[in-house]
Structures are given as C-alpha cells and as structure tokens.
Amino acid sequence: MKRKKFSAAHYDYLRKYSLRKISILLTQILVLAIFITLWELLSRYEIISSFFFSSPSKIIKTASEMFKSGELVYHSSITLKETFIGFAIATGIGFAVAFVLWCSTFLRSVSEPYLVVLNSLPKIALGPIIIIWFGAGQKAIIVMCILIVIIVTILNILNSFTSCDKQLIALAKSLGANKLQIFAKLILPNSLKDIVSTLKINVGLSWIGAIMGEYLVSRAGLGYLLIYGGQVFNLNLVMTSTVILCVLASIMYLLVAMFEKLMNKFYGK
C-alpha cells in the first residue's frame, strides 16, 4: 500500500517541504552561532565589559574546570534529583487527585474554590512556612517544587478529563460501560494530548520549583551556584550555571517529546 507511485507534483511538494524544514533548522543554528560569535568578539575586545557579561570562551573554561573538579556533576545532580523527584511526585499525585475529582462531581464542586485560590497564590510566599515545617534542607526544596507543579497539574488534567464529548460518553453508557471503562477507553485516550502537554509544562515548572527552593535554603545545587556567584560577583559562575541549566532543561524536555512521539505511535496517529 505504502509503495505507491506518486505524481511528479507530489515529489515536488515533498522536495519543497523538506527544503523548508532544512532552511528553518539552518536559520535556527545560524542565529545561535551569530549570537555566540558576537558575544565572544564584543567581550574579547572589551566593547562590552567581560567582567559583567562574561564570554562564551570563559564559560567553556569555567565549565571544564568545574567538570574536572567534579563540581559540575555534583551540583547538577543535586538539582536534577530535586527537580526529578518534585516532578514525579507532583505529577503522580496531581494525576491521582484529578482522577478522584473526575469520579465525583460532588468533590469536584467542593474543591473548586480551594484549587482556584491555591493556584493564584504565589508559592514562594510559602517559603518561610515550608522551611519551618520541613527544615532548611533538600526536603523543603522538593516540597516547594511539588507545590508549584501540583496545582497546575490537577487543574489542567481535570479540565481535560471533563472536556470529553458528552455524546461519546452517552454512547459508551448505552453500550453498558462502567465508570472505569469510560475512563480507560474514552477519557484517557481523549486526554492524551493534554496529558503530554501538561508533562511538558511540568518539566519547566519543576525546574522553577527546584531553583526557587535552592534560592531559599540550599548549600548546593545550580540554584545555589547562581546565588553564590551573584553574591561574590563571579559572573562567569553565574553564566556557566545558567548555561548548564539550559542544557539540562532541554534534555528533559526532549525526553518528554520522545515520550509524546511514542504515545502517538501507540495510538496510531
């Protein structure tokens, strides 16, 4: 079936399509290259202060020094761990709560105002309370991370669960489906896209949570390096930590994107 002969116009279309894709990618790379080169040149010739702006070569140098001393892996792994634990717990519990609230319209209505208030509350305001309750250690950072992620997760996933077409539900009911079957065969596949996009949002939010937590309490981690570098005016350290953060966050995002592809394949889209 797939090995059909296509018209010349189709091949022309395909060629244009891939050409466009390549040119987008090339432009993206070019933008980055120009940015890095400009930055390097400007700071090398001290047109901008290399003390305040650092420079790509200095960042690479600092990073490789940190790598050799083991600092890079140490701090990164601490922040990664906090982010990952926060992400996993918040996503898991958020999903479970959304499921329970989907099951019971009564609980959903009861919890609604609480969720809305908790959602609009800036979680950083809870910092002092968290430190007092959980101590000024990693636990507090993870709790901060969870708090930032969980409410959004509940709201997004619940919203997606309840947005399933009423007619499809009526059909399933007329076919004798029970609540669990409706969830497994209608709600879940219908929400798949939203679940994946929630995961994507959560990746970003967990990084925010972990870094914010580290700003508050920590003695290690990338957030700590940022704060420390800022306090001692070591801009190289600040920039390097930022770059590492960018790289790690991108990797985690890519993992989720791969998961998304896998899911789409599974559902034959």
């Binding site: 077409d165 007619q167 499809l168 009526a170 059909l171 399933a172 007329s174 076919l175 004798g176 489906a177 029970n178 079957q181 065969k185 209608l186 596949p189 219908n190 798949l192 559902y267 034959g268 889209k269």
Partner: peptide, 30 residues
Amino acid sequence: KNNFCGYMFQRDNLLPWRTIEKNIYFGLEL
C-alpha cells in the same frame, strides 16, 4: 448494564483515535 438495544445515535460518534476496525469492536470490548 444489560440492555437489549443497539442504539445508533444521530451522530456517528466514532472515536477519532481508534482505527475503523477498533471502532467496530468498541461495543464488543465494553
């Protein structure tokens, strides 16, 4: 849970994420 009816709705109500074959088995599965 246990009815004798086959209800064909005003709209086809096919599940967009299922193939035609899987759509046909939907009632049997449930």
